[in-house]
């Protein structure tokens, strides 16, 4: 992990994206418009980015494709509770619960 001044520079860099994106059109005012095609393409960016971050973590085991691993099982439980319940805590409780049980209980 980055340490000290680099860590804080990293936070500032991440924070600048918050201001740049949220402020983009609010700061520019009426002068600018977002082109329609770009607007539609941008809608897909967050879902694609979140999936690209999540999928390698749950599908890979030490660098190779291995769907039968504790994290993938926990992810299925998370998916189940996220679709079935409106309680935002349940996916965390059951997902983490299964992962801890499999790793510590069964030493997977």
């Amino acid at each position: 992990m980055s340490e000290g001044i680099w860590l804080w520079l990293t936070f500032i860099a991440i924070g600048s994206t918050t201001l740049l994106t949220r402020g983009s059109f609010i700061m520019l005012g009426e002068k600018a418009r977002l082109p329609n095609a770009l607007h539609r393409a941008l809608r897909y960016a967050p879902a694609a980015a979140l999936a690209a971050l999540v999928a390698p973590d749950i599908l890979l085991d030490e660098g190779s494709l291995q769907p039968f691993n504790p994290k993938f099982a926990a992810a299925l439980v998370v998916l189940f509770f996220a679709l079935r319940s409106r309680n935002p805590w349940l996916p965390f409780i059951f997902g983490m619960g299964l992962l801890i049980l499999m790793r510590k209980g069964f030493g997977w």
């Binding site: 990293t10 600048s16 994206t17 918050t18 740049l20 983009s24 059109f25 520019l28 977002l34």
Partner: peptide
């Protein structure tokens, strides 16, 4: 890290354009 944060925040460009 910067680019990843930018992509994750891109939806705010849409919000910003809508609210401007």
């Amino acid at each position: 890290i910067f680019l990843t944060a930018m992509v994750l925040n891109l939806r705010f460009v849409i919000f910003s354009a809508a609210l401007a």
